[in-house]
């Protein structure tokens, strides 16, 4: 009897599992399809796209569209390719991510371990920045950048992203540090460590997972931002704005293969960051949210 029952159980399990896998594979394909199309069409010569099937594999594979997108494609008035704008994006994203993460960590440390009257209200106000739509701040921000003399510069753009990034970074670190026992800080105080020594020697070494979460989040957001880039960058726009200029250009033949290659180039860094550090992302995100 017992054996028979178990037999059925195994069989049911197998059917269910097969079903689950089929569904999962279907959805995986569904989501990979656009990427497949971009990939395939970015290595075809243009006539193959305009005269044939989007889904077909390339007959004469070529990397010319990639080279063109990178270094020779017409962006706006100049034929520079995406290269200089890629550099602009890097120059913007690295300092912005670094500064907002460090400030978020400091804020989280202060809001949990050096509490003061009104700290929860302050934290609540900082959280607003996570939810205020970008469009609302465009005009006041333009005014402030003008006053600071940072209008149409990369440092100005960095400032905008740092200001916007602090909210999320603080949220992550505050929730993470809330789970770190305060006795650690008190013990370090008795040991004679100061404010920054405790931060540097005790808190930061414990912050690995949440730092990675914060970096991935900020990097993806800042890299993918279009609105601030288009509004405040002036003559040095980031990658996203340049890609738009490339794809939306209304003169000449639409070089779809170059557009596809450019789009992949623009998405590559975030993809890379996620692949390298992604598993920490899920882990750290859980740690931050559950224990908060």
């Amino acid at each position: 009897m017992a054996v028979a029952t178990q037999d059925t159980a195994v069989r049911t399990g197998r059917i269910t599992r097969t079903f689950i896998y089929v569904v999962l594979i279907f959805f995986a394909c569904f989501y990979l399809l656009p990427f497949f199309i971009m990939m395939v069409n970015s290595v075809k010569p243009l006539p193959e796209i305009t005269g044939g099937n989007m889904m077909a594999l390339p007959k004469e594979p070529t990397i010319a569209p990639w080279l063109s997108a990178w270094s020779t494609a017409q962006i706006g008035v100049e034929a520079t390719g995406l290269k200089p704008y890629f550099l602009n994006s890097i120059l913007m994203v690295v300092p912005a991510v670094a500064i907002s993460t460090v400030l978020g960590a400091l804020n989280g440390y202060i809001l949990t371990k050096w509490r003061f009257r009104g700290d929860t209200i302050l934290f609540g106000l900082m959280l607003f920045s996570c939810f205020i739509p970008f469009q609302i701040v465009l005009i006041p921000m333009a005014r402030i950048l003008g006053i600071l003399g940072l209008a149409s510069t990369i440092p100005g753009l960095i400032l905008v992203h740092v200001v916007y990034g602090i909210g999320f970074a603080t949220l992550y670190f505050r929730n993470y540090y809330a789970a770190v026992p305060t006795e650690l800080v008190r013990s370090a105080q008795i040991d004679g460590a100061g404010f920054f020594q405790i931060f540097w020697r005790i808190m930061l070494p414990l912050s690995g997972p949440i730092t990675i979460v914060c970096i991935i989040w900020q990097f993806t957001n800042i890299w993918n931002d279009f609105l601030f880039g288009a509004s405040f960058a002036g003559s040095n726009p980031p990658m996203t704005v340049a890609l738009n200029n490339l794809v939306q250009s209304s003169t000449g033949v639409k070089e779809y293969n170059v557009h596809f290659a450019g789009a992949i180039l623009a998405a590559l860094p975030t993809l890379l960051v996620y692949i390298v550090a992604g598993r920490y992302f899920v882990r750290g995100l859980m740690a931050g949210s559950v224990k908060g």
Binding site: E183, I190, R201
Partner: peptide, 20 residues
Amino acid sequence: VHPSKRNIAMVFQSYALYPN
């Protein structure tokens, strides 16, 4: 006087050992 200058030492309930 700051805790570190009182010449005291404290053992905490959770021990508060620095995990790193």
